[in-house]
């Protein structure tokens, strides 16, 4: 598997798209840091970009990468290798190169701005972790979807719908549920639903740092207590890992039953 991670990483890290992605984060982060009066505002802006854009780019990029390397994958599969190693290797190389572009793109400007001496260091690290987690989970979803659907347009369509669902619709559904069950205590429901969506989970983790004062209100304090507790953090980490592991598992299953 290491060989495949290496090759797809080496291939991708030199691609125009990866470089563009890196430059994009570099420029946007620098611009935000330059124009915002202070770090808090920059952190909030970065959070919005990370939560919306990383899932979208990871999904699109994941699908493109699979469809583009379709024929080469076939050639590799004709070699004495396990399908599982190849597919997981390619996916890991992809997720790694996305994560590294993103990490380098936002870290360089923040370091130059002195993030390590700032009280916002934890917020920044959370954003970084959330971005990496989202890169891995969303590109896994895209890769599994693309493997499942040979038809590119269908594959892209489904991937984009998954993004839209997780980024916007899902929260709408939560809202509707909360309104429907307004008469009942819905706090635990809200917590459980949050764990089921990687974008929401990332958002809540970052929010805990940024809106600590507001969260001290009654229900908010409950969330703060839960997500801030050891159990909360453990479940969060576990949930993120699930969001990487389950699509990866599906990816392998789909690949094993697939005709190339």
């Amino acid at each position: 598997m290491r060989k495949f991670i290496k090759y797809s990483f080496v291939d991708l890290i030199q691609s125009y798209w990866t470089i563009l992605y890196f430059v994009f984060f570099l420029v946007v982060t620098s611009t935000i840091l330059y124009f915002s009066a202070d770090m808090t505002k920059s952190i909030v802006s970065m959070m919005n970009i990370v939560l919306v854009l990383i899932p979208l780019v990871s999904i699109v990029f994941g699908a493109i990468y699979y469809y583009n390397s379709r024929e080469f994958t076939e050639l590799l599969l004709a070699q004495p290798v396990r399908r599982r190693s190849l597919i997981l290797g390619q996916y890991s190389g992809l997720a790694l190169s996305l994560s590294i572009s993103f990490t380098a793109g936002i870290t360089i400007p923040f370091i130059l701005k002195g993030i390590f001496a700032s009280e916002h260091l934890p917020d920044f690290l959370l954003i970084l972790l959330a971005g990496i987690g989202l890169s891995f989970s969303m590109s896994a979803i895209a890769y599994a979807t693309a493997l499942k659907h040979e038809n590119k347009i269908l594959g892209f369509g489904i991937s984009l719908f998954i993004w839209f669902f997780l980024a916007v619709l899902y929260d709408g559904l939560i809202l509707i549920l909360l309104i429907l069950f307004k008469e009942y205590p819905t706090d635990s429901l809200a917590i459980v639903l949050t764990f089921l969506n990687p974008i929401d989970l990332s958002r809540v983790m970052i929010m805990l740092g940024l809106d600590i004062a507001a969260l001290m209100g009654y229900t908010g304090a409950l969330f703060l207590k839960f997500f801030g507790s050891f159990t909360g953090i453990a479940i969060s980490v576990f949930s993120v890992l699930c969001w990487i592991a389950i699509p990866s598992f599906l990816m392998v299953r789909i690949a094993n039953n697939k005709d190339f």
Binding site: V10, S15, R70, E71, F72, L75, A78, Q79, P80
Partner: peptide
């Protein structure tokens, strides 16, 4: 068993950046 076999696919497409 694929150690015993060489395969030449119909369409040749390789990673762009290698």
């Amino acid at each position: 068993y694929r150690n015993e076999i060489s395969y030449l696919p119909q369409i040749a497409r390789f990673p762009d950046n290698l």
